[in-house]
């Protein structure tokens, strides 16, 4: 464990908590893409199948349980409890356009052709693009609530910090996973446009409005 990865995990945790707080306090899922949350749930389910078979550390297990339960809870809140506030008309990104290419790529490009490894690889590829429905929805509505933009900033930062973690592990632990690194770079790059808007607008106290 290194500081980059720990802070990255805490940013990830903060993002998920921020999202749950937003939903619970505003009693609304307005502006949230249920499809992205479904994809994140799928990322955790396919990545943490080794939760009971491969013990890494208490920290690792506790975080996996939290990420799994919170992502499933978020999908539940969006599609059942606060369904009335779910803006399905703007959440129209076709998930199959992400699921199928990620599945095919995971079968072709992986470290080992075994079910667990292919599912892990699928979850890595899917996580890189899972935010697209949410970013697409914001581009359609042209705006995002401030707390939603804080959520996105924390979520984008987490994988950016993981890139620093991979650099650190490459130089000091001689540990390098090309699949995770390439997917992580793609994932972080997808947030760059949002990061620019967040820093130039939200941090100036303005609402996140996309140029129409």
């Amino acid at each position: 464990m290194n500081a980059f990865r720990l802070v990255g995990d805490l940013c990830h945790l903060a993002a998920i908590v921020l999202l749950l707080l937003k939903i619970w306090k505003s009693r609304s899922v307005a502006g949230l893409s249920g499809k992205s949350q479904i994809l994140f749930g799928l990322v955790f389910v396919t990545r943490y199948l080794d939760l009971v078979t491969n013990f890494v550390s208490p920290y690792n297990t506790i975080m996996k349980v939290f990420f799994l339960s919170s992502s499933i809870a978020t999908v539940y809140l969006i599609y059942t409890k606060f369904k009335a506030t779910y803006d399905g008309n703007h959440d129209t990104f076709r998930m199959e356009f992400l699921l199928i290419p990620c599945a095919l790529l995971a079968i072709v490009v992986n470290h080992e052709f075994s079910p667990m490894e292919i599912l892990w690889t699928f979850s890595i590829y899917l996580e890189a693009v899972a935010i697209l429905p949410q970013l697409f929805m914001i581009s359609k509505t042209g705006e995002a609530e401030t707390i939603t933009s804080h959520y996105l900033f924390a979520l984008g930062s987490y994988r950016g910090l993981y890139i620093m973690n991979w650099l650190y592990r490459y130089y000091y632990e001689n540990n390098f996973d090309v699949i995770a690194v390439v997917a992580g770079i793609v994932q972080t790059v997808l947030y760059c446009d949002f990061f620019y808007l967040y820093i130039t607008k939200v941090l100036q106290g303005k609402k996140l409005q996309l140029p129409a």
């Binding site: 491969n54 890494v56 975080m63 080992e112 996973d177």
Partner: peptide, 10 residues
């Protein structure tokens, strides 16, 4: 061949 990865990251 790629050695088997022990995925120790979240």
């Amino acid at each position: 061949t790629d050695e088997k990865f022990e995925h120790d990251e979240l």
